[in-house]
Design a protein around this nucleic acid. Sequence first.
DNA 1: GTTGAAAAAACAGAGGA
DNA 2: TCCTCTGTTTTTTCAAC
Lengths: 145, 145
Amino acid sequence: MDQLDKEILLVLQEKGRITMTELGKEVLLSQPAVTERVRRIEEKGIIDHYRAVVKAEKVNNAVTAFLLFHTKTCEHFVDACSKSNEVVELHRISGQYNFLVKMVSETLHTLETAINEMGTFGDSTTLIVLSSPIENKKIIPILKN
Amino acid sequence: MDQLDKEILLVLQEKGRITMTELGKEVLLSQPAVTERVRRIEEKGIIDHYRAVVKAEKVNNAVTAFLLFHTKTCEHFVDACSKSNEVVELHRISGQYNFLVKMVSETLHTLETAINEMGTFGDSTTLIVLSSPIENKKIIPILKN
DNA sequence: GTTGAAAAAACAGAGGA
DNA sequence: TCCTCTGTTTTTTCAAC
């Protein structure tokens, strides 16, 4: 992970569909050289995948919420979350709660229904997201040499 | 937003660098037809951008944490978070806390330093992420027609 | 790492169902 | 709105340096 790899990753986090030719121009490298570097970065598993970042509210998913959960069992809860279209993230956390769940739903009403269904797993606290001033910020790779 | 647009968005959330030719095959549409549909989807602003999803732990950012914050002022706090490389998400939330902050840092030590620097803005509770069973799940568009 | 040329592929446009 | 067909552009691959 040198300076060039770092720059490449920063560009790819911003323009995921950029061509190798263009990427080469941005980081001042020839096209075959960047292509090879990107290939190696992908091979190392540094890039999980490429994705279109969808604005949830534009596809009628208007409500985002975080739930703090205190569950007794873990596995069943993870399974249930996996099956829910509304759960988009699930984090195992330290502290008085077990899990932090991110949910995206159509309306407050559909969110309520989804939360109720999960209520059997334990106690929860719901944090409704009013706005998200920062989202999708790039990960800054740390140089190691 | 019909069934085809929905399918296209699901594929693009999984394979952000897919070519229009390949995407056409996946959703059983000709290349010019998908190209046109994607163009319209982008035009509507449904796709925010395309990005490489980087695995933070592979670029030496090993620690993820969520902070619940209770701040007095909002603007200065948002500014400070914007400038921090470690803050990757910031959500304004309802409830007894003002903000939920997602941070990604190199080590527990660097995380601690970053949290300390933000301590001036108010009281906070830190939730260290032990693991993330679900991440980057696709948004399921809701059909309207 | 570079350049440059050949091969492959993807894209854009026209005309028509 | 979609299809097929085709010309053109772009990208990639693969030399040699």
